[in-house]
Design a protein around this nucleic acid. Structure first.
Lengths: 230, 230
DNA sequence: ACAAAAGTGTTGAGAGTACACCCATGC
DNA sequence: GCATGGGTGTACTCTCAACACTTTTGT
């Protein structure tokens, strides 16, 4: 029958959470990486993560890691996938539950203890060599982010509380890696009802001041997908 | 910095895989449940699962559980979600990686050891009380299955190798819980190119014999979703 | 010939896509 | 007044959704 095997303590895997933290920096989609110190991967970059504590849920663990690294608490986070190949960590069996998070760059607290040599924001389109299977994890997170952008409204979570339509469009263009038509973008996003005008305009910058918008969190964030079958 | 906490052996969670096994039985979408024996949930129904062995991947563990219960080896399986609330198992900390599988009912080996009192196929639309958080897991699996049906081609995985379009349409109707238009269904699925005619016809049953089709596994299984943004 | 299931086309509505010019502001 | 980015409408195409009758077989 099933599940007669009960693993002895020594054979229990460790469980970690790792978090792919996305942010938009200098017109680029970047992820936060930390430099590893005390293991076979010492000196290599990795996505932040750590062991799950005995009395916290997986999501709480991910949020804790996220706050430790960025100081941010109210963010979009989502479980991505669980990676558990027996030899993904050469030291021992480690199963990691990967999350991804979307953080507005202006909300991040760059803490005094931060050392540029220890943490850094790297373009997802040009990553350094990463420890473990973290390259695979980041690539999977990017695929999922792109996919989610196409049928839900998560794009806003990378922007400040208020933003212009051009800024939003630019965020989509960066992530999707393609240019979008301005008129179609504006019509579609405004008709979806997920934004509301703030009544204010953006004063900085050149040219005509742009209307500032805000995300309506009472809006229905999903859109019907095109079905393969009728 | 991050991840200074290293859990002592005794605090390491156990890791299991649980598999929601779907099949179509008697014009109903059902899941395989097993009766638990030796724990606080003894006598209750649960989805099959067990501990991850030291040298197998998570997917291998899920496939092993699946084969132990059904005898089937070549099936559609997909990681669903990882459930890890600290108190989801009252005895100890257990983190479970849930999978869901689609199995054609005619491929299942009902093994001689099977006792109807110990395993059974239950309608997902009318489940008995389930152990742990397994109700939540099954419901999440159904949501995911419905969602996948709409933009990919997994429906075939619940049918025999060859099948008629009416059988396929019926499978979709059962899972989605709604009637579909025959002409639109046939047009769309045939134009998508994921099926090929076998040239044979189904002889059994009343009425005009139907053409038998086969899934083309070289076909592109996904379809473009309707984007929220242009 | 009749019961039972298989198979087949058309039309109207709505959404997607492509495309170019005027507007408001700061310097 | 000019440079800069903001903001706007229309026409064509394609996909979706609704809808009813003929064909093939077994009895």
């Amino acid at each position: 029958m099933s599940g007669n095997y009960i693993p002895p303590l020594a054979e229990r895997p460790s469980v970690t959470v790792d978090v792919v933290i996305f942010s938009l920096v200098e017109e680029d989609l970047r992820v936060l990486l930390v430099r590893r110190k005390y293991d076979p991967f010492a000196g290599m970059w990795a996505i932040p993560g750590g062991f799950v504590h005995p009395n916290e849920s997986l999501e709480q663990a991910a949020l804790r890691e996220l706050e430790e690294e960025t100081g941010v608490t109210d963010v979009y986070i989502e479980q991505l996938y669980t990676f558990g190949d027996p030899d993904r960590d050469p030291r021992m069996r480690v199963i990691t539950v990967a999350y991804f998070a979307l953080v507005p760059y202006d909300a991040i607290q760059h803490r005094p203890g931060d050392d540029a040599a220890e943490t850094g924001w790297f373009s997802v389109f040009n990553l350094p060599p990463l420890a473990f299977d973290h390259k695979e994890i980041v690539e999977y997170a990017l695929t999922r982010l792109r996919y989610k952008l196409e049928y839900s409204a998560v794009g806003f979570r990378l922007l400040p509380d208020v933003f212009t339509l051009s800024e939003l469009q630019q965020a989509y263009e960066i992530i999707l890696g393609e240019k979008l038509d301005k008129r179609n973008f504006r019509r579609k996003i405004l008709s979806s009802g997920i934004l509301e005008e703030t009544g204010k305009r953006k004063k900085e910058g050149e040219g005509r001041p742009a209307m500032l918008y805000r995300y309506r969190d009472d809006a229905i964030a999903e859109v019907k997908t095109r079905r393969l079958f009728p």
